[in-house]
Design a binder for these strands. Structure first.
Lengths: 227, 227
DNA sequence: TGGCTTATTGTGGAGTCAACAATAAGATGG
DNA sequence: CCATCTTATTGTTGACTCCACAATAAGCCA
């Protein structure tokens, strides 16, 4: 065992778990109606769970950092680039992968402009699913999704977390709808506005759409967030 | 080999990062004077960083769960059993281990009764160090310690996190000293007592020690915590 | 009894939070 | 022009949380 930790031990002399990353990437549906969260899933092209839907992910390569691996898998399997990801944690329960012991590091992200999905790698197709109506998932990915959603809810307590998901100018109704989608609950209009008051500034512009009072446009304020 | 094995073999076809666990186990110094936090470190018996102090930890075995591996390393390298550990997260920066790419999953814990340390495994000795006066650490363990302390500070916001660190009956001064040690800051006596008021109940007993008013003894209340 | 040491307790102010409804601005159709 | 419709916008109150702050209580001892 000691030799296994020597400098030459890159030829491993005992079985070890493999490291994977999995990505729970969410996006909001189009604003206007009730915004909902959708989750990116890929359909597995290989056993086990061939044909089932799963989170994008895969094995971490030698000398590849964890966020880097997560981004790469997202691009390979779904064609998405430059998505900001956050680590949720590691899961290594024995038996979670029938092929053998794997330890996965879960990442979560919110995607603004999903672009065009293009399945590749181990995936035959990639698609978005409303989070409340997910299909049966491969491996223990249902558990991972639950953890990812909890992580999102914590992060969105700082409203700037949503900054990258909105265009430079947006209405407060859009910001609130997005927040509600992430939290999965509805928020009081006045309380929400007071809460974000110091994080946004009005640009002076308005947006007219429909037979009602136009909405003011806002942008995120510069500076550090508080809370 | 059958295809089910080929899937496994695929994971071994190219070099992959290894999975390790590291444990940042803290303990409070004896109550009475200013309580301080100490960190358990082991002295490495093997290169790299031979002779340096490091967090207990090591490779995760096949079909071993992550918390299990962390507990095993703690026992092998320091002789400590049955310590409750919490996951902080995974770190896999390439170059963090000069032997090759490793992904480590960091755990944090607070030890009540440290028992007797007995170095073993890859460690020549094990000892406790006041967290503000740590020696130079192997690998990136200084970074891991910082992350572990931040994790502790978050968890102690629920005072019940400290439940296992105190005897069945304790004084509020002891509880406060412990909290302050974990937070690294001092707290106002009255605010602290009000805050924990609903989490503890007086047992009716008192403890006399010294030329001053005796302290009431408390125990943790049953039931779910709020906050 | 006076002095020392630590334990114990409450109040006021600032800030945060959630619950609550009425008015404003524009579009549309009669 | 007026009524109506739709969404945008705005304030107040009370409950609660948080922090800062100091005086008294109880025991020991010289």
């Amino acid at each position: 065992m000691k030799s296994s930790r020597s400098a030459t031990a890159r030829t491993y002399d005992f079985p070890r778990p493999a490291v994977t990353v999995d990505v729970a990437l969410f996006r909001p549906t189009a604003p206007g109606t009730h915004v909902r969260l959708e989750l990116l899933l890929i359909r597995r092209d290989l056993p086990p769970f061939r044909g089932d839907w799963a989170l994008p992910g895969g094995f971490v390569r030698e000398n590849e950092d964890l966020p880097e691996a997560a981004g790469r898998e997202l691009e390979e399997e779904a064609g998405l680039k430059q998505v900001v990801l956050y680590q949720v944690g590691a899961v290594g329960t024995p038996g979670r992968d029938p092929r053998g012991h794997t330890v996965t590091v879960l990442f979560v992200g919110l995607s603004r402009n999903p672009g065009v999905l293009s399945a590749g790698g181990d995936a035959t197709s990639a698609d978005w699913f409303v989070v409340d109506e997910l299909p049966k998932l491969a491996f223990d990915h249902a558990v991972l999704v639950t953890a990812a959603r909890a992580s999102l809810r914590e992060r969105v307590e700082d409203i700037r977390f949503l900054q990258d998901l909105l265009p430079a100018e947006f209405t407060l109704a859009e910001l609130q709808g997005l927040t509600e989608a992430v939290l999965g609950t509805e928020l009081d209009v006045r309380n929400f506005r007071r809460k974000v008051r110091e994080a946004v500034v009005a640009t002076g512009g308005v947006r007219r759409e429909g037979a009602h009072r136009p909405a003011q446009l806002f942008r995120f304020a510069r500076g550090k967030s508080r809370r």
